[in-house]
Amino acid sequence: MKTQHPIMCSIALSLLLLFVVGCGSGRTDLVEVTGKVTLDGQPINKGKITFEATDGKGGVEGGSIENGEYSVKTTFGSKSVKINSPKVIGEKKTYGTADSPTEEVVTEAIPKQYNRDTELEIDVSSSSLEHNFDLKSK
């Protein structure tokens, strides 16, 4: 039992170090980009928006869309944009029994040219921190 004590201490110390380093890494190269997202003129109720550097040198940042609005911290530069929003299309039983609870069946409400096969790109610069997206379903 005594041989486990040093291992447990090492694991705990490693986790603590990861937590401290992760929380203290305040990046100063991020800027806040905001905007509105609509589909056929209607605000996206709930969804996600993701920015990915097109030069391959930057990371991927993203955030939530709530009531047609988003706010994401990202770096300057050219970004590929992906927008997703779930749409409930029905219910199904969780199990094959008569008394089984049900769960929602969802699909993607946003056409693939705005997410999986995105055609959206923006340039994030000090003079361009607001980007609105008016998506079309057809």
Rank of each mutant, 00 (worst) to 15 (best):
G77D: 03
H131C: 10
S128W: 00
S10Y: 05
K36V: 10
T75Q: 10
D40W: 02
V20H: 07
T74G: 14
V81N: 05
M8Q: 12
L18G: 12
R27N: 12
Q113D: 15
G41T: 06
V72Y: 03
T54R: 12
E104M: 08
G41I: 07
K2G: 00
G59T: 10
F76N: 01
A53C: 04
S127K: 11
T97H: 08
I7K: 14
E52W: 02
I44F: 01
I65N: 05
V72R: 07
C23R: 13
C9H: 06
G63L: 09
G47N: 03
V60P: 04
E66D: 09
S126K: 14
G59F: 10
D134P: 02
E32H: 03
D134F: 05
Y95A: 10
D117F: 05
P101H: 08
T54H: 05
L16A: 15
V37F: 05
K82L: 12
D29F: 03
I7W: 09
S85G: 10
E108G: 05
K136I: 02
V33S: 12
T3K: 15
N132W: 03
I89E: 14
L15F: 15
F76W: 06
S128T: 08
T74I: 10
P111F: 01
C23F: 14
N45H: 04
K87F: 00
S80D: 03
K2L: 15
V124L: 07
G77K: 06
K93N: 08
E103H: 00
K82Q: 14
E61H: 10
E119F: 00
G68R: 08
G77P: 02
E66Q: 10
E52I: 11
G90F: 06
P101C: 06
S80I: 01
L30K: 09
K2Y: 13
E103F: 03
